[in-house]
Computed example of a mutant assay.
Amino acid sequence: MERITITVDEDLLKEIDALSARRGYKSRSEIFRDMAREALAREAIDAAEQVDGDEPCFGTLTYVYDHGIRDLPIRLTDNHHAHHALSIATTHVHVNHDNCLEVSILSGTAGNLRKFADSVTSQRGVRYGKLHIMPLEGEDGHHHFHSHSHHRHDDHDH
């Protein structure tokens, strides 16, 4: 067995300690091992059900972040700009003094949506990140990717 050191926010550690007590764990190591196993098992299930990486999809990326973390809001905004071809819209909500909730509506291949989601949710200070992917399927059972262009509506357009 290997020994590691991790850094955890004080509030998160209080929640983990409370969960540990409710479940009857004898040590923090035991609950962290179980949480890691649960996350790995969930990832394996998600991977088995995931849409093919090249398949065109819509997705929603929902996450909460601490806007007080140094440069985090700027890094998140820069990341969205760097992936502007995927982003359709983002809604930003001020949850409380410290936290913001964002929901981004995305469109692109499943693989690109996953990469973008990972680049957002892996940032220090981002919590509760979840990507939901919906494949595009037409009435004929085939997948279709529809894009549209924005255009002006002049008075003479019919």
Score class of each variant (00 low, 15 high):
2 E>H: 03
4 I>M: 06
5 T>N: 11
5 T>E: 05
6 I>W: 05
7 T>C: 08
8 V>Y: 12
8 V>W: 09
8 V>F: 03
8 V>K: 03
11 D>T: 05
11 D>W: 02
14 K>M: 02
15 E>Q: 13
19 L>C: 00
19 L>W: 04
23 R>D: 06
24 G>R: 07
29 S>T: 15
32 F>G: 07
35 M>G: 12
39 A>G: 03
40 L>G: 02
41 A>C: 03
42 R>I: 00
42 R>Q: 13
42 R>G: 05
43 E>K: 11
43 E>M: 01
43 E>P: 00
43 E>W: 01
47 A>D: 11
47 A>E: 05
47 A>N: 06
49 E>R: 12
49 E>D: 05
51 V>G: 00
52 D>F: 02
54 D>A: 10
55 E>F: 05
55 E>M: 07
56 P>K: 05
60 T>M: 10
61 L>P: 04
64 V>N: 04
66 D>E: 04
67 H>E: 13
67 H>A: 07
68 G>M: 08
68 G>S: 08
70 R>I: 00
71 D>L: 06
72 L>H: 07
72 L>I: 09
74 I>A: 12
76 L>Q: 05
77 T>E: 07
79 N>H: 03
80 H>P: 02
82 A>H: 03
88 I>K: 07
88 I>D: 09
89 A>I: 13
95 V>N: 09
95 V>F: 04
95 V>L: 15
96 N>V: 01
99 N>D: 08
100 C>M: 11
100 C>R: 04
101 L>R: 13
103 V>D: 05
104 S>L: 15
107 S>G: 14
107 S>V: 09
108 G>I: 12
109 T>L: 14
110 A>V: 10
111 G>K: 09
111 G>S: 06
113 L>A: 01
114 R>A: 00
116 F>Q: 05
116 F>C: 00
117 A>Y: 01
117 A>L: 02
121 T>A: 07
122 S>H: 09
123 Q>H: 09
126 V>K: 04
129 G>D: 04
130 K>Q: 15
130 K>M: 08
131 L>C: 11
131 L>P: 03
132 H>N: 15
132 H>V: 14
133 I>L: 14
133 I>Q: 07
135 P>N: 03
135 P>G: 04
136 L>D: 12
137 E>T: 14
139 E>A: 13
139 E>R: 06
139 E>P: 09
140 D>Q: 13
140 D>Y: 03
140 D>P: 12
141 G>L: 02
143 H>R: 14
143 H>V: 15
144 H>Y: 12
145 F>R: 11
147 S>E: 06
148 H>V: 13
150 H>D: 12
151 H>S: 12
153 H>S: 06
153 H>V: 14
155 D>I: 11
158 H>V: 13
158 H>C: 08
158 H>L: 11
